[in-house]
Amino acid sequence: MSWIQQRLVRNLARNCRSFSASAPSRSTALTKTALSHRKAYAASALFWGSALAVAAGLTLKSTVHLDAEAAPTPVEEETRVDPATSIEFPTKMKIQSRTPLPTFTLMGVGVRTVSFLGIKVYSVGFYADLNDPKLDVPENATPEEKIEYIVKNRACVLRIVPTRSTSYSHLRDGFMRALLARQLLCRQRGQLTPDEELAIQSPLRKLKSMFPNTPLAKHSPLDILVTAPSPKQPRTLIVRDLGSVQSDWLASEFVLTYFEGEGISPPLKKSVVEYVKTHL
């Protein structure tokens, strides 16, 4: 064997040993490379998944925003503010009911105060149905007589809005005291016979029983509706969400207590009188 052949054999043997020694490291390198690619793929998938989720969220948000922009803007209703409490009352009131009701017009607002400290209990707005062309208010009557005529002949609403948290029972006690005083006054005036006085006791008890011993939150309106007179049935006094009671006397006198003398709320009576002088 020539020296050239001997060198070739030695080089071949050396290369085989070098290859065998480096095989594990190459395998490890390939494994690391594969893991690296796998991690990169997973990271890429996570990124695009997140990106798609964000895009979907932005698309949804954009859609909602566009829908909100496309929605019609509600018409702002005209209101009147009680200067003593800053409580607002809509100048027109439409009450949803299974039986169609008229649109009521605000005639005046005022505050109800109690005790010598002048604690403000609630603001009250007086509404009446003034849209009927048959409403024939006597032209030569005094403002007080015109108010009484409207109360006795048209549907009316008293909206009561507490200035502070109170209770239904507290309002009920005030209503009942006012009605008992009204009952005594009507008896003295000869406007209430003994039989009529006996007949109104049951409606009075029913009205008293309708008010629960639960709180009434500040600025939560309580609407008290009196239906228009009807030849078919007595007038109905309806306390929103609480119940109703039928009685011609109770329906009209409940409202008139707010206008007798100075009234339960002198500012309310003054406000309504001014409206009558201006519009009726």
Rank of each mutant, 00 (worst) to 15 (best):
E76I: 02
M210R: 05
D241I: 11
P24C: 11
G190S: 07
N140M: 11
I200P: 02
V75I: 11
A56T: 15
P138I: 05
L60S: 04
S247W: 06
R38M: 15
L222C: 05
L185S: 11
L207P: 00
K232V: 10
V255N: 04
Q5R: 11
S252I: 00
V151I: 08
K39W: 12
V255K: 05
P229G: 12
A43T: 10
T105C: 02
R98L: 05
V273F: 12
T142D: 10
M1E: 02
L158S: 10
A228R: 03
L171W: 13
K232A: 12
T85K: 06
L192A: 13
R154P: 04
K120L: 08
G57R: 03
R235C: 07
G243R: 10
K218L: 13
A51G: 09
S20V: 12
F211S: 07
R187I: 09
H170R: 03
R240H: 14
A13G: 05
W249Q: 13
V75F: 09
A55R: 06
T278K: 11
R159A: 14
N153L: 12
D67M: 12
E145Q: 13
T105P: 02
V124I: 13
L184G: 05
G125K: 00
S209D: 11
L171R: 05
T142P: 00
L242A: 15
L216N: 08
L280Y: 13
L242R: 13
R10S: 12
V64S: 08
H65G: 04
P90F: 13
T91N: 07
I264F: 06
T91E: 14
A155G: 15
F126T: 00
V151P: 00
